[in-house]
Design a protein around this nucleic acid. Structure first.
Length: 707
DNA sequence: GTGCCTCGAGTTCC
DNA sequence: CTCGAGGCAC
């Protein structure tokens, strides 16, 4: 190994010692900076430590420690923005596109809160079409600004936010110690036009719309450029806070106005669906005169205690919804219908369109969902659009669903070419030629090729490395595609043997670095990221396996229920022949027969087991983290609710129990720890008595969990 | 069996 | 983002 000394001429031992020293020093400063907010060295000194570490790691990749600060999220390379984790996620809102959906939203809330008749108060305000930003104030000073990103992790744009005039750098005395304010950065029409005119004069980029201009301006690496752009900010929400200055949505927002933020003047309080809809129509009528873009109206439950009770679904709050304006439409020609094969073998038709601008974006592809959608048939077998099947050559109306996803709305039959023929959906897989079968009652036609179908295998590999699964930096769909074509990666385990294939200890220079688009640095980074991914969260790992019916949420549910990989795998393999084990799987609230059988079949398959064995040589999924259960009286217990709950709805009770670390099951068994029975409880209560289980009334339960 | 409510799997463009 | 379908309550 002497030949592999770095260009700094340090020996392996010396380099290792220095890396260890740098690591501990940087960790120390990270803590000082992030947790105590009291840096003890200058940023420049800190950066010097970091770059020395990276330099050593580049020279001695074999010495990179899995806990190296250079790998840490939030400590990125100099280019681009640092990542910031949102302590309170920045979720998106559910959407309503019709008055019925708004009425459903209100009904749902009343039902959840168990207030079928009483009015619930809502705020209603325009939905600004900009980009959301979270501003963190500590003792009244702006200490950080982050974009939404994926909702959990955004980009640190503090330096840029500081240049926006409508964002105060300091709040008045007496504000809570910690206050995260959230709102929308946007650009007014007049400012946008002036900016584009100036850009044109200078021969610079013209922005397609105010939203893009605002986004582009905020994400400038040079804050001076951001400062020169006419950005504005409306405050409308908050994230992590040490105290709240009011107990209603409208009350808190009004206080934000007193603190110096711009708040939207069109916010109103509404007491009924009719009032919400009236306000929606009023805003829609004013839309063209506002001077800035909006794309709908947002309704929120006004009382914060009710918001808290309503809580969150996996990705959206239950207490708010965005009522969207109808989407812009455009007409173009459907030039061809092509078929893509997904990881489950699903054949998905995609429309190739003559490019057309819709809502400021050029669209050339659109999803067609499935066979029936092309035929114009709905799920119930009835035509959605009588006689409106889609044919190549047709003139079609398209729109962007939610202003994002292009969709075909319908056909202009008057423009249909005389020689057009109905589209024939293929019955063999275009990727491998195997028969493509449509199960009775299903909408999707699937390739039966399984592992012999190259399209399915590649898509599964892409899924394995995808963001929500293993999330390996530098290894995305494109890289998987090229490694597959080279024959380097045929199954997940191969990802972990890439290192042996092309260095750093193999051939010199690395074979990877010779490929188009790869340099030595990116190769080293990739290998490091792969090594760094060897201990994934169990839930992510289960999701990565790509078992049918097991998505992100279910994977986490399984991880939480079984705790460790070994326990889960053993249980799933046993469940094939052990009825008790299968019953235990089915007893998990949210797991039914289809899901259970899919998982059991996955583990019964010899090829899958072999691929797992090969993969697990290289990795070790982490045992699932339990929810925050400090002081929780029900942590780790299995709970069953039965009968009618009178003080909260069943879904609310379930959500509360889970947030306290309990496992909510749908059926009573010997493994049940606690049964909460309301009036009208029947068979489950009897069974609980037979088994001698602890049974609580709803009042006891509420007392137990503390209100 | 029916009617929610959620989740999974597919998709676009930048 | 939408659609289809799984899971569960009624």
């Amino acid at each position: 190994m002497a030949a592999r000394e770095g260009k700094d001429n340090l020996s392996e031992e010396e380099a290792a010692a220095e890396i260890a020293r740098l690591t501990s020093e940087i960790n120390h400063h990270d803590i000082a900076y992030h947790q105590k907010d009291a840096p003890v060295i200058s940023d420049a000194e800190y950066d010097a430590l970091k770059s020395r570490l990276v330099e050593l790691e580049l020279a001695h990749p074999e010495l990179i420690r899995p806990d190296s600060p250079s790998l840490r999220v939030g400590a990125p390379p100099a280019e681009g923005f640092a990542k910031v984790r949102h302590r309170v996620p920045m979720l998106s809102l559910g959407n309503a596109f019709s008055e019925e959906e708004v009425a459903d939203f209100v009904t749902r809330i009343r039902r959840f809160l168990n207030l079928p008749d009483e009015p619930v108060e809502f705020t209603s305000e325009p939905k600004i079409d900009g980009l959301s930003l979270s501003l963190r104030y500590q003792t009244g000073k702006l200490i950080g600004a982050a974009t939404r990103g994926d909702g959990h992790e955004g980009e640190n744009v503090t330096a840029n936010a500081l240049t926006i005039k409508e964002i105060p750098n300091v709040l008045p005395l007496g504000v809570p110690d910690l206050f995260e304010i959230r709102g929308e950065v946007y650009m007014r029409h007049a400012d946008f036009d002036a900016l584009n005119a100036a850009q044109a004069v200078e021969g610079r980029k013209i922005f397609a719309n105010p939203r893009n201009a605002a986004a582009g301006s905020l994400r400038q690496l040079d804050p001076k450029i951001t400062a020169s752009r006419p950005l504005r900010f409306f405050a409308y929400a908050w994230g992590e806070v040490s105290a709240l200055p009011a107990d209603t949505q409208a009350g808190v927002i009004a206080v934000l106005g007193e603190w110096g933020f711009e708040i939207n003047p069109l916010m109103r309080i509404c007491n009924s669906v009719d009032e919400l809809l009236a306000h929606y129509r009023a805003i829609e009528a004013e839309r063209a005169n506002l001077g800035y873009d909006i794309d709908g109206v947002v309704y929120k439950v006004n009382r914060l205690d009710l918001q808290e009770r309503l809580g969150f679904r996996s990705n959206t709050p239950r207490w708010a919804i965005a009522h969207k304006f109808p989407a812009e439409q455009a007409t173009t020609v459907l030039e061809a219908i092509e078929i893509q094969v997904g990881r489950t073998g699903a054949l998905s038709p995609v429309a190739r369109l003559r490019p057309v601008t819709v809502g400021g974006v050029v669209v050339s592809n659109a999803t067609l969902h499935n066979e029936d959608y092309i035929k114009g048939i709905g799920a119930d077998g009835n035509p959605i659009r009588e006689g409106r099947d889609l044919r190549e050559g047709d003139t079609v109306r398209i729109y962007r669903a939610g202003d994002v996803i292009p969709k075909v709305l319908d056909v202009d039959l008057s423009k249909r070419p005389a020689d057009s023929v109905p589209y024939e959906f293929p019955t063999i897989c275009p990727a491998c030629g195997s028969p493509a079968i449509r199960e009775p009652g299903e909408a999707v036609r699937r390739c039966t090729g399984g592992l012999t179908c190259p399209a399915q295998v590649v898509e599964r590999l892409k899924h394995f490395v995808s963001r929500a699964a293993m999330d390996i930096d530098g290894l995305g769909a494109k890289q998987i595609e090229s490694f597959w074509n080279l024959g380097w990666v045929k199954e997940p385990a191969d990802i972990f043997t890439l290192e042996a294939r092309f260095g750093p200890e193999g051939s010199e220079p690395a074979r990877l670095a010779k490929l188009d688009g790869w340099g030595e640095k990116s190769a080293v980074n990739l290998l490091r990221a792969i090594r760094n991914s060897a201990q994934p969260e169990l839930g992510r790992f289960i999701f990565a396996l790509g078992i049918r019916h097991v998505g992100e949420t279910t994977a986490r549910l399984l991880a939480r229920s079984y705790g460790s990989w070994a326990a889960w795998r053993a249980a799933m393999e046993a469940a094939a022949s052990d009825e008790n084990e299968r019953a235990q799987l089915l007893s998990i609230d949210g797991v039914g027969t289809v899901l259970a059988d899919s998982v059991i079949a996955f583990f019964a398959d010899a090829h899958n087991r072999g691929a797992l064995d090969r993969l697990l040589i290289h990795m070790n999924p982490r045992t699932a983290e339990q929810p925050d259960i400090a002081g929780s009286p029900v942590a780790g217990k299995t709970i069953v609710f039965t009968g009618t709950l009178e003080r909260m709805s069943r879904s609310e009770a379930k959500a509360r129990a889970e947030s306290l670390g309990a496992r909510v099951s749908g059926s009573v068994s010997a493994r049940t720890d606690l049964v909460i029975a309301g009036p009208g409880a029947g068979s489950k209560l009897r069974k609980a008595a037979e088994l001698g289980l602890e049974v609580l009334s709803e009042d006891d339960w509420i007392a137990l969990i503390g209100g």
